[in-house]
Design a binder for these strands. Structure first.
Length: 255
DNA sequence: AAGTGGATCAACCGCATGGTT
DNA sequence: CAACCATGCGGTTGATCCACT
């Protein structure tokens, strides 16, 4: 692999944590907090780098960590949020109290992704995969995600939403020759050209699935594909609101 | 009982971001 | 404003577990 890791460079320990190390870290954090992860291992007497300590605490030792299997409700929430947010595991974890981004990422890759693939195979008429899902991050690693870089412009079949009075904002993506679509009030998009706003039923009949989350995935692309490139710090609450308007699960906790 | 291959998950790595100097 | 630093994030790895042959 690339450059030598910092831990080895400093003669620090790597690999699985021992119960003794865990206890030292717990005791230290409970006493002094974790204001400075970099300095913590030295102060606590641990032969670990700060990064490793932070990860261990956040993913395993934190007192509010919920262990054990994910409930069907949690899994459904993850699926919904993943449709909405893509591989933004920390954002998803923020909506699942007691669950960590690492855990959610693991459960997605080991269970949920396969389940969705199976579901899609069983219903081959539909293709819910996003054309291009861009997040605020511009790194190559973020873009290299299979979820985010997968390609499918056609969203399938009938849309069953009853919210026909909603507006849908459509922007032709010249480069990829498809439409970016989002649902919401036109006032949510300052400076939008009126020609971009179509009635909902007029658009979704052209090929959208019945999951609000998929619409939102397209939503995010809209922001980054058009005049709104400067809005790379998009507002989670804003998107959540649109997600709900578009028929997303309302049972998620409030921001 | 032993071997094998897939599944799982803790931990690591590199990079991006935001704050500070 | 550039350089540096600390932290957070997402992708990936590798050890271990477990079911199956």
């Amino acid at each position: 692999m690339g450059r030598a890791p910092c831990c080895e460079k400093m003669g620090l320990k790597k690999g699985p944590w021992t119960p003794e190390e865990d206890q030292v870290l717990i005791n230290f954090v409970q006493k002094f907090g974790h204001g400075n992860w970099r300095a913590l291992p030295k102060q606590a007497g641990l032969l670990r780098c700060g990064k490793s300590c932070r990860l261990r605490w956040i993913n395993y030792l934190r007192p509010d960590i919920k262990r054990g299997n994910f409930t069907p409700e949690e899994e459904e929430t993850i699926i919904n949020l993943h449709q909405m947010l893509g591989n933004r595991w920390s954002a998803i974890a923020a909506r699942l109290p007691g669950r960590t981004d690492n855990e959610i990422k693991n459960v997605w890759h080991t269970h949920l992704k396969k389940r969705l693939i199976n579901n899609n195979n069983n219903n081959s008429e539909k293709d819910f995969s996003p054309k291009r899902h861009r997040t605020g991050r511009t790194s190559s690693s973020a873009n290299s995600s299979p979820q985010q870089s997968s390609s499918s412009s056609e969203f399938s079949t009938e849309h069953e939403t009853s919210q026909n009075d909603s507006k849908v904002i459509v922007v032709k993506d010249e480069e990829y020759d498809h439409h970016q679509v989002s649902s919401g009030s036109s006032s949510d998009f300052p400076e939008l050209d009126e020609s971009m706003i179509w009635p909902l039923d007029q658009v979704v009949s052209g090929g959208f699935d019945d999951h609000g989350g998929d619409m939102l995935l397209q939503n995010e692309s809209l922001i980054f594909n058009t005049n709104y490139d400067d809005q790379d710090q998009y507002d989670m609450e804003f998107w959540y609101d649109i997600f709900i308007k578009a028929g997303g699960s309302p049972e998620l906790p409030e921001f």
